[in-house]
Design a protein around this nucleic acid. Sequence first.
DNA 1: AAGCCGGGGTC
DNA 2: GACCCAGGCTT
Length: 322
Amino acid sequence: MDAKRDPYSTWISETMLQQTRVDTVLGHYARWMQSFPTVFLLAAAPEQIVLSHWQGLGYYARARNLHQAAQIIVQEHGGKFPPEHKRLTALPGIGPYTAGAILSLAFHQPEPALDGNLIRVFSRLQNWEGLPQESAHWKSLYWNLATRFAEQSPPNLINEALMEFGALVCTPKKPDCAHCPIGDHCQALRLDLVHLRPPLRKTRAPLDVRGNILILHYQDKLLVERGTTGLLAKQWRLPMGSTAEDLIRALELNLSDIRKCGLVKHSITHHRMQLQVVFAKTQSDVLPPDPDENFQRQWIPLDRWQETLVNSLAAKAIRKWS
DNA sequence: AAGCCGGGGTC
DNA sequence: GACCCAGGCTT
């Protein structure tokens, strides 16, 4: 990742990189900066346009938070990023890591930015058997060490170098210890425990989910819905249900041309989903009223579904049908 | 402190 | 198929 290090570019790239690999981010980042080159243009853009630029990256709250934070930065900070940890973390989507990254990389302040790379490097360097997520004790040890590094000069290069070192040399699997520039200082290497550092985190048991996903046409329109909780919350998505009958009954519509057109496998966090794709048509676009703002339905133009339906599950299902 | 939230690339 | 990844938010 070779992003410019002004505050806005740093904010966008570091947010995209949260839990997301560099190769996945590159294309999205270029397109984003093309469409929203400044915080002002991001703030002024419609939310759905912003979300469509996030298609395929996952964790869509990140895109909504970027949009909201941009509006706050424009309205309350005159379009300038506040160069203070407390005021940065007050913005939606900016936590301790991203605040530290912006402050050190863009503002050259001696602030720590502890990410997954640094955690791995430190765990090996110090042969620490704990993780910062585990307890306040480990948390302070990791952040204090990150702070000591950041207080070296210049902080932007120190933090950048630590992250690059973790990404290129001190990698999760097969770290290149033979050519490690700081191998002489590595406690885990000295004790031959590199393969045990950092310790494995306990994995969530996967949850098998079986059900149906509906592609419903009314003339040249497609039915979508959204809720405010659970998977793909606040995102427009295709209707899903445990059985096709449930799905159809909830709509209170007469359907025709019903046919099954394939099975979609898709994982969302620890949910392993296998969904039967059900295609149908209806002659009426009158939907049952939305129970409240927490659940909505709408018809969207079929040929422009990608503007609204921003998630990979829907894309997979529609690919099965077409 | 722990659980939750996407998706794709590895091995 | 399991695991991992430049986290943050909610409970």
